[in-house]
Nucleic acid binder design. Structure first.
Lengths: 114, 114
DNA sequence: TCAACATATGAATATTTGTTCATATGAGAA
DNA sequence: TTCTCATATGAACAAATATTCATATGTTGA
């Protein structure tokens, strides 16, 4: 036996279909506008108009991106009168977001050392 | 004042530049070929030829994608004679990958319930 | 040096995708 | 109902991107 950190030699390779879905999920995170929306929603729900103001983009562009985020199950809408408030659907969203940020910062900090 | 659930009003919103880099990171995960490469490398290093065989794709396509993965700091090469072995650069890669899988499975399991 | 092999790279092409513009849907107020 | 406001949607265009083909780089062995 070896004392390497990763003991689980699981040939747990998901099928191609699952990996495709996984790539589709990350693709949703892989756009600057959508990430900015997610980032804005970390502090709580926000309506479409407010989002478009915060990001300095047209309402239509935001709405289109919200639809993609919604289809992916990353955000969910709440209607209140004429306005629709969006919020993160799931704690996983924040976890994935934070994990990505951690990676970036990790890479930034080793930049000078290597 | 209102008593909304999210009290932590942390204006910890990263600057647009950082969020752009974050989206670029997720964009790298957001391709089926690259995710399959990452998935294959979870079990250990693999050479380019073997990877192209495992994925049933041309060597050039794999090489192109490996370059993207390498630039993003997700995989690293190790040369041994003529062959180059690739492995995951960083534990974060597996963490992000696993987090994404967890999200997908989570969503699949709530599909019937909601 | 030359030949054979493994990988990397560049150009070209086809597909995907984000934004804009115009318009449609839907809710509240009069 | 009709007007207005907030959001959603569809079409069109521009930009980004993955794969293929051809070729270059670099290593090993003769």
């Amino acid at each position: 036996m070896q004392e390497h950190p990763n003991e689980n030699k699981s040939p747990d390779i998901p099928d191609t279909d699952t990996l495709y879905n996984l790539s589709e999920l990350f693709k949703v995170f892989g756009d600057a506008t959508r990430i900015r929306i997610i980032s804005a929603l970390l502090d709580g729900e926000m309506c479409v108009f407010h989002l478009s103001e915060a990001l300095g983009m047209g309402q239509s562009a935001i709405s289109h991106q919200l639809r993609i985020l919604r289809s992916a199950g990353l955000v969910k809408p709440r209607r209140s009168g004429k306005t629709v408030f969006y919020s993160l659907d799931d704690e996983h969203v924040k976890l994935i977001y934070d994990m990505g940020l951690a990676h970036i910062r990790h890479k930034n900090n080793e930049g000078g050392a290597l």
